[in-house]
Design a protein around this nucleic acid. Structure first.
Lengths: 160, 160
DNA sequence: GGTAAACAGGACCGTGGTTGTCCGGTTAGT
DNA sequence: ACTAACCGGACAACCACGGTCCTGTTTACC
């Protein structure tokens, strides 16, 4: 299914949340606002900080702040921050010491154009694009909504 | 890493192999030619047959044959055959009864443009494009090639 | 100066999906 | 009739991801 890590989905939600509000926002505060367990939010924010998408202030009254507005953050950056480099297979660029055993591999490097195409596609979409995209599909709570709430009260699957 | 299933990689190799040679090719024959265990090749071919990318002839002298030339097979078809529908998250199109718990989910449907972009990118690349892509990078056997051969003799990681 | 709030950076398991294999059944040539 | 090959499903081992927790370290406030 070309699976994207769920953490990446969380990251997008967190970043959008961070864009609302002017000051710094704490990890527990964000977690409460978007309904994701705090440790998970913290892990996401940690990764985003490493990649420079957000800045952190330590100590009491600390928190996180966006370094760029949403329209300057391509989705590819978020994915790269959480999932690592964007590549469909590990057989790319800097892959050394693997693959091509006994020279039989007839596909060495063939995925490169595919990877490049996907990278380009993801770089062209910013978080602002995603933010203004189809919201109407949300809030269509089906009849069994209560069932789901009781079934999984703690974790809130966002785009699951 | 935006992981693509390894089976999909195999599928590409299998299809390229099928394009060489005029008649039908048997599953064991293909397996021997590309160095992948036969059961795995059979599983891949099974999925490709279901999606109509190859046709099968049963019985003795049976085998598989391409239904389309490589330049008419977009990568998206191969991925869809093995990995299922192309979507970064399960929160798409026909996803029902999940997600949007208690209406908190602020990102419902936001991944749709991203999915569409990736689908378009993958549909624009055919197996012929991949076939004629960078072969030179192959056969650059490093010094420790022998080590790898002895380390993993049975399975041959193609684009791993 | 002390305390509390918040980030930093690990380590830690449970779970689910993928991988790879195997088996019996069916079809069609020889 | 026999054999070669596909068909369909089931099954175990493995690995990565998801989620949690714990121990520092930093900083603001009392």
């Amino acid at each position: 299914m070309l699976r994207l890590s769920k953490l990446t989905d969380y990251a997008v939600v967190v970043l959008v949340r961070l864009s609302s509000g002017d000051g710094v926002q704490t990890s527990p505060g964000i977690a409460a606002a978007i309904g994701i367990p705090e440790p998970t939010v913290a892990k996401v924010l940690k990764a985003l900080t490493c990649r420079g998408l957000v800045t952190s202030s330590r100590g009491a009254r600390g928190g996180y702040r966006l370094t760029r507005p949403l329209h300057a953050v391509p989705v590819s950056d978020v994915i790269a921050a959480i999932d690592g480099p964007i590549a469909l297979t590990a057989c790319v660029d800097g892959a050394e010491g693997h693959c091509e055993s006994q020279g039989l591999c007839p596909m060495a490097g063939r995925w490169d154009p595919v990877n490049a195409a996907i990278r380009a596609a993801l770089a062209a979409i910013t978080l602002a694009d995603m933010q203004e995209a189809a919201v109407p599909r949300a809030f269509r709570l089906p009849a069994d909504a209560a069932h789901h709430l009781s079934a999984a009260p703690a974790s809130i699957p966002l785009s699951e």
